[in-house]
């Protein structure tokens, strides 16, 4: 049953669930084991905070998985739209007199192994896929109670205020396996668009994958480990900054202190050329 209503610009709203979701889950218990753990690795040393991933995500997911991501009061005083990925920025003030630093910090669903958002869901709409660990909302089952969003420590779920269903990052499940896309495009929209290449996608359960190697090399971290959600996504911490590494680098040795002396040096240097 699809109810169509044209909106102001002649684009069409489709209130029925998109093609991505049909059928119901049996239970919302977490799978005991997932064959793979697909997720993102985000490099905080490289992210410039451009929000490209935010809007690419919005664009793809408005048009694809589930209900479109709507915006209410879009041109008014208090616009509120649903986004599946957001970029924060934090200021870090080191102890001592080193200058403060700024870190841009993208955040979407971390596809936790022990996802509390799944177990609290009363309808089975929220589930974690056993084949790849992706946590999804089956929108046709979602009653929009919001409990899963409460249960997520990371703020990775947003209720769509127009459609009344829970929205979250799908890890672009409708891209990564999509046979209608060229092979190279079978990656999340946010990863594809990120201009600095700060976002990496892969299987974190496979120690030989590029993402696992990055995590090992750069000391990738989990967010809020004390929440025991076992997130799959990892963050690569910013590298040392402001000469923390080479404060002892030597100054240049002068060849001359005066223009005259410099001219003399120049003559001898030119001789050697």
């Amino acid at each position: 049953m699809s109810e169509e209503r044209p909106n102001h610009d002649g684009r069409w709203t489709d209130t029925a669930p998109g093609p991505a979701q049909r059928g119901s889950a049996d239970v919302t218990d977490l799978p005991a084991f997932t064959e793979r753990s697909l997720g993102l690795v985000i490099d905080l040393d490289t992210c410039v905070g451009c929000h490209a991933c935010v809007v690419a995500c919005k664009g793809w997911n408005t048009e694809h998985y589930g209900a479109p991501l709507a915006d209410s009061d879009a041109y008014g005083a208090n616009p509120v739209g649903s986004f599946l990925n957001r970029v924060h920025s934090f200021e870090v003030q080191p102890d001592g007199d080193a200058p403060a630093r700024l870190v841009h910090f993208p955040k979407s669903c971390l596809h936790c192994e022990d996802a509390p958002c799944v177990t609290v869901c009363p309808t089975g709409a929220s589930y974690k896929r056993s084949e790849d660990g992706i946590v999804l909302v089956n929108e046709s089952d979602c009653i929009g109670c919001g409990l899963c969003a409460w249960a997520c420590p990371y703020g990775a779920r947003e209720m769509d205020l127009v459609e009344g269903v829970m929205k979250k990052c799908t890890l672009c499940v409708d891209r990564i396996y999509n046979e209608n896309l060229p092979e190279e495009d079978r990656e999340p929209a946010c990863v594809r668009t990120c201009p600095t290449g700060a976002r990496h996608f892969g299987d974190l359960s496979d120690p030989s994958s590029d993402v696992s190697k990055l995590v090992a090399e750069r000391g990738g971290i989990e967010l809020m480990p004390e929440q025991d959600t076992k997130p799959v996504n990892r963050y690569l911490p910013p590298r040392g900054k402001d000469g923390e590494l080479d404060v002892l680098a030597p100054f240049l040795e002068p060849v001359a202190e005066e223009p005259k002396g410099f001219m003399a040096w120049l003559d001898s240097a030119l001789e050697r050329l």
Binding site: R22, A25, D26, H64, D174, N178, N180, L181
Partner: peptide, 14 residues
């Protein structure tokens, strides 16, 4: 064994 909902992972893109 948990059965995940059927999902069309190859929807038409455009």
């Amino acid at each position: 064994m948990v059965r995940d909902p059927a999902l069309d992972t190859s929807p038409k893109v455009s």
